[in-house]
Design a binder for these strands. Structure first.
Lengths: 183, 183
DNA sequence: TGCCCACTGGGCAAACTTGCACGATGGGAA
DNA sequence: TTCCCATCGTGCAAGTTTGCCCAGTGGGCA
């Protein structure tokens, strides 16, 4: 972490844009939100928005990107001699443990954005990028190319499915659904 | 007023620095405050502080400067054929009317800063600058150079004296003291 | 006395933001 | 269809902030 003022302000601006984008998308619906209104809400010029995000979808899904990056980090910081599947399930457990998101706003957000065509494309793209990185990480841990690819793909698919399922059946905790899906 | 984003942010930064400077001076005493601590409190670099103010005293007295500038503005916007003394007293009345400063923080601030040598010098300088501008304005209204100078000087002196007096005898309103001093 | 150290003001380059302009895109009205 | 208009992405110049620098100042201490 760079504790410099410049770096902190950039992070703050990125977060302000992300949060403004999510809030406005929830308030008015994802397609009735303009880049300009997001920039205004974040106290920043329209041009500056473009310096941070390629489009409003990217701004909306920035939270997911952070989450996925954190997951990759959790995978990487585990010892190299662990069995790959254990590494993945442990990482998933820790991710859920450190972000106890019973935050109802987050749930509402996911519910609203789910299934929205232009947004879904971006979410898929984010997962695809993560799949690449995760595959590389697993290959570094000795798996063959094919096995790494398959494991990464199925792991992320299971994660996504469990989250989706949890949104529709919040009677049990997300962690339980994830555990079941990974098994 | 320029409603542009750039201009608004500059104003916000200047105000943040001014308010941080006053707050810290009140908390820790005027000389135990460093430029760096002011900049930190305003979420800005030490270098940026220097882009706005020449020193911490200037930052502390920026509020007074704004007040004095507003007074000059109130003088200027009055019709040119008014008697000069009436112009001044009217301007003073309006200034007091629009800023009903019974704000106890402001009083505490003035009490603390009053008499502090390094600060007093700057306050005097601010009044001197205003005296110049006010003299010029009065000269534009037809007064001879000497009369303009004297009227400006006595008017500002009366204002300052009334404020000072009010700080020590807050039993009557500031407006009353000012009215009496001007008479 | 001389030395150290915190604080300051300001030069400078690099990084960042803003404002503006221009072309591209797409939806809706004539 | 064709035209209009809102929105968008992006290049560019000007304005602003940051970080690093260094020299000057003044208080405290050996």
């Amino acid at each position: 972490m760079d504790t410099g003022l410049r770096e902190r302000k950039k992070t703050a601006t990125r977060m302000a844009l992300h949060e403004a984008a999510v809030r406005l998308a929830l308030e008015h619906g994802p397609d009735r939100v303009t880049v300009e209104s997001i920039a205004d809400a974040a106290e920043v010029s329209r041009r500056t928005f473009s310096n941070y995000f390629a489009g409003k979808e990217e701004a909306i899904f920035y939270g997911d990107l952070v989450r996925l990056r954190r997951l990759l980090e959790l995978v990487r910081e585990q010892p190299g001699d662990e069995p790959p599947r254990a590494v993945l399930t442990t990482a998933a457990e820790r991710l859920l443990a450190e972000s106890d998101r019973l935050d109802p706003a987050w749930v509402a957000q996911r519910r609203l954005l789910r299934g929205h065509p232009s947004l879904a494309a971006h979410q898929v793209a984010a997962y695809a990028a993560m799949e690449r990185d995760l595959t590389a990480e697993l290959a570094d841990r000795g798996l063959s190319g094919l096995r790494a690819r398959v494991l990464a793909a199925t792991f992320l698919a299971a994660l996504r499915a469990a989250t989706q399922h949890w949104l529709e059946h919040p009677d049990r905790g997300l962690a339980e659904w994830v555990a079941e899906a990974l098994a």
